[in-house]
Amino acid sequence: MGTAIGLDLADDLPAATLHELAEETFDWLREVDARFSTYRDDSEVCRLDRGELALAEASADLRAVLERCADLWGATDGYFDAYATGRLDPSGYVKGWSAQVASDRLVAAGAVNHCLNAGGDIRVRGRSSAGRPWRIGVRHPWDAAATCLVLTGTDLAVATSGVYERGHHVIDPRRGEPARGLRSVTVLGADLGVADAYATAAVAMGAAGIGWLDRLPDHLHAVVTDDRRLLHSTNLPLTT
């Protein structure tokens, strides 16, 4: 998936069970990478984009993701656009979606206390091995060794979209140019895939994304602007 994946299983389960659950989780994420990667010529996404694969012949997962991306395009007034770069790239939803699916599967298997971190898209359930709520650091967009916020909770989906690693790579689909104004956007919600897409959409909106996030129901946010302002929802679950 082009990023580091971290998994912390905090349940008091047999070591063999934990190992099996971890392997199943990483097998799933490797499957997602093989199917959705825009860097692998043989992935379903690339084959569909080149016209070598008919949509009707695509996997059920790919068809479901594209349908969800279409819904999110409408929900974001077109700012979340899987074709913003000129080619099919649903990555702004897929990373969060795949981590959410993995977390849901862990809960169903009895691993109700865990933290899954897919390159800054984080799903936590239950408590850490110390019995405390999970602490989630939001990276400082100008200092990779620091955090700008620390969140805490027992059931959080936290997605961050930023330009601090790859530059201004998020495209404003209305102008066809890299969006500017927001350095980092973090969105909290119930579903990590949706939070991931909303964070990407807000970055694409630029400064207007702040007002859009303020009006977004059932989600919280934190934003760092290009001019170094930190703005966030008043009820964000911050560590005190």
Rank of each mutant, 00 (worst) to 15 (best):
I5D: 14
I5F: 14
D8V: 12
L9H: 07
A10V: 03
L13R: 00
A15I: 14
L18D: 15
H19Q: 13
A22G: 10
E24N: 07
T25S: 05
T25A: 00
R30F: 02
D33A: 05
A34M: 11
A34W: 08
T38Q: 04
L48I: 13
D49G: 03
D49P: 08
R50F: 00
G51C: 06
E52S: 12
A54C: 14
L55D: 02
L55H: 09
E57F: 13
A58D: 06
A60K: 09
A60E: 10
V65Q: 01
A75L: 15
A82S: 12
A82I: 11
G86H: 05
D89N: 01
S91G: 05
Q100V: 03
A102Q: 02
L106G: 02
L106I: 11
V107H: 02
A108N: 03
A108D: 14
A109N: 03
A111C: 15
A111K: 00
V112K: 00
V112A: 06
V112G: 06
N113H: 07
C115D: 00
A118G: 12
G119A: 14
D121P: 11
I122P: 09
G126M: 10
R127F: 10
R127W: 12
S129R: 06
P133F: 14
I136M: 05
V138D: 07
V138P: 03
D143M: 07
A145I: 02
A145H: 12
C148T: 02
L149R: 01
L151K: 03
G153Q: 09
G153E: 05
L156Q: 06
A157K: 03
S161H: 04
G162Y: 13
Y164Q: 14
E165N: 09
R166H: 14
G167R: 02
G167A: 11
V170D: 08
R174K: 15
E177I: 02
P178D: 11
A179M: 14
R180N: 08
G181Q: 13
G181H: 14
R183F: 04
R183D: 12
A190P: 05
V194E: 01
D196Y: 08
D196R: 00
Y198Q: 03
Y198I: 14
A199S: 07
V203T: 14
A204V: 07
M205Q: 03
G206C: 09
A207D: 04
A207Q: 06
A208Q: 08
G209I: 10
I210F: 11
I210C: 10
W212F: 12
W212K: 01
L213G: 01
L213T: 00
D218L: 13
D218R: 15
H219N: 01
H221Y: 11
A222K: 00
T225D: 03
D227Y: 04
R228Y: 04
L230I: 01
L231N: 03
P237H: 02
L238R: 02
T239D: 10
